[in-house]
């Protein structure tokens, strides 16, 4: 039953992805974490579009990409790349930060 409920959601999600037809059209944006800073710190993405963020952590220590506004939270181990999907979003500024180094790792997504 446990397995089933999971694979069911999985299947449902997959179908939705396929049906919306956005699986291959998703634009990709790169963000790099270096010395506990985000590059770029300000990223502009299109309005009402789902985008795929590739977050490359070049530090040796882990970082957690977190945004309350975007509802995202993902641990990115040191020297690795994490994938986070965001959107579709309305126009506005959505701040994000690195939860492990919040004083320096600050950034925002600008939706235009």
């Amino acid at each position: 039953m446990k397995k089933n409920s999971f694979s069911y959601t999985y299947l449902l999600g997959f179908l939705l992805v396929v049906l919306t037809g956005s699986a291959f059209a998703t634009p990709v944006f790169n963000i790099e974490i270096r010395n506990h800073l985000f590059y770029p710190a300000e990223l502009t993405i299109p309005v009402d579009t789902k985008v795929k963020l590739l977050i490359n952590n070049t530090d040796t220590s882990a970082e957690e990409f977190e945004s309350y506004e975007l509802n995202r939270e993902k641990v990115i181990p040191g020297k690795s790349t994490g994938v986070v999907f965001i959107g579709p979003l309305k126009k506005g500024v959505y701040p994000f930060f690195g939860e492990f180094f919040p004083k320096t790792a600050q950034g925002s997504i600008h939706v235009d």
Binding site: T9, Y10, L12, G13, F14, L16, V17, T20, T26, K50, K52, Y68, E69, N71, R72, E73, K74, V83, V84, F85, I86, G87, P88, K90
Partner: peptide, 26 residues
């Protein structure tokens, strides 16, 4: 669990149906 599947894009993202962050911020 839903949140995780959303983030992994295994469930298609939609607009939130409400926003109570003004009331109680996460």
């Amino acid at each position: 669990a839903i949140q995780m599947l959303l983030q992994a894009d295994l469930i298609s993202s939609e607009l939130p149906i409400w926003d109570t962050s003004q009331l109680v911020s996460e």
